[in-house]
Amino acid sequence: MRQGLLIATALLATIGPASAQNFFERLFGPPRQPELSPQPQYQPQYRPPPQQRRAPAQQRPASPPKEKEQKAEPAPPVEPPPAPYEKDLLRLAEIMGSLALLRPLCSAPDGSEWQTRMQALLDAEGTTPGRKERLAGAYNKGYQAYALTYRICTASAQDASTRYLREGETLARNISSRYGG
């Protein structure tokens, strides 16, 4: 019996891989050799610069484009260095924005004046677009800071309004006395 087992094992060992290969050949067919296509040889080609590649009918005359120069917008003016009182002026604009919200909220008689005062400040000090944008941004920052907090007039809103009036008055007085007015 042992001999039969050895013969069967030897037979399976010799037949095993062949039958497995036959199985794949029956499913997928005999193995194919990959076809090698000849690689194209690289041949450098001369390409003219982009200006010369245009067809003659598409080329434009060599006249200078004066129309485009006239239509182009001028470069924005160079921003001068900030004034020495720039920081105080931005703080004043922020205070004016806060007061523009707080004063009308608490029914102050000067409630409607803060927007026109800010417009006067923009007209006087907004000499460049960048500076005008910074001043308006400071005003909006002050306005929005309290717009998120206060919907009605409270004691805290009145107190903040009073403090801002004093601080704004001090800033305006210092700026005008130190830097001319």
Rank of each mutant, 00 (worst) to 15 (best):
P44F: 08
Q51M: 09
E25T: 11
N22W: 13
S19R: 04
E69G: 12
P34I: 00
A8P: 00
P40R: 09
A55M: 07
E69T: 09
Q43H: 13
Q39V: 15
L5P: 02
I7E: 04
P49K: 05
L11H: 00
R53A: 06
L12E: 00
G4H: 11
K68I: 10
P38A: 15
S19L: 15
P61T: 08
Q43Y: 11
R32N: 04
A57T: 04
Q51G: 08
R54W: 11
P44G: 05
F28E: 06
K71S: 10
G4R: 15
Q39I: 14
K66N: 09
T14Q: 12
S37D: 14
A62H: 01
G4V: 07
M1C: 12
P31G: 03
R2F: 11
P56R: 00
F24V: 04
P61W: 07
P34S: 01
Q51N: 09
L6W: 09
A55V: 01
P50R: 05
A13V: 11
R47H: 14
I15L: 15
Q52N: 08
A55Y: 07
R47I: 15
R47D: 13
S19T: 10
A18P: 02
Q33Y: 10
Q39H: 10
T9K: 09
Q70N: 05
P49Q: 06
E67S: 11
I7P: 00
A18L: 13
P50T: 03
S19C: 07
Q43C: 02
P50D: 06
R26G: 04
R26H: 08
A8S: 08
P31I: 01
G16K: 00
Q43F: 09
S19Q: 05
S37C: 07
Q70D: 07
L12V: 06
S37L: 15
R54F: 14
K68E: 13
Q59S: 03
P34W: 00
A8W: 06
Q59F: 03
F23C: 03
E25M: 09
L5S: 09
L11C: 05
E35M: 10
K68N: 12
F23N: 04
N22C: 04
Q51Y: 08
K66M: 14
F28C: 03
R54G: 10
E69C: 02
P65A: 06
Y46L: 14
A62Y: 03
A55R: 03
I15C: 10
P30W: 13
E69Y: 07
L6N: 04
P34G: 03
Q45N: 05
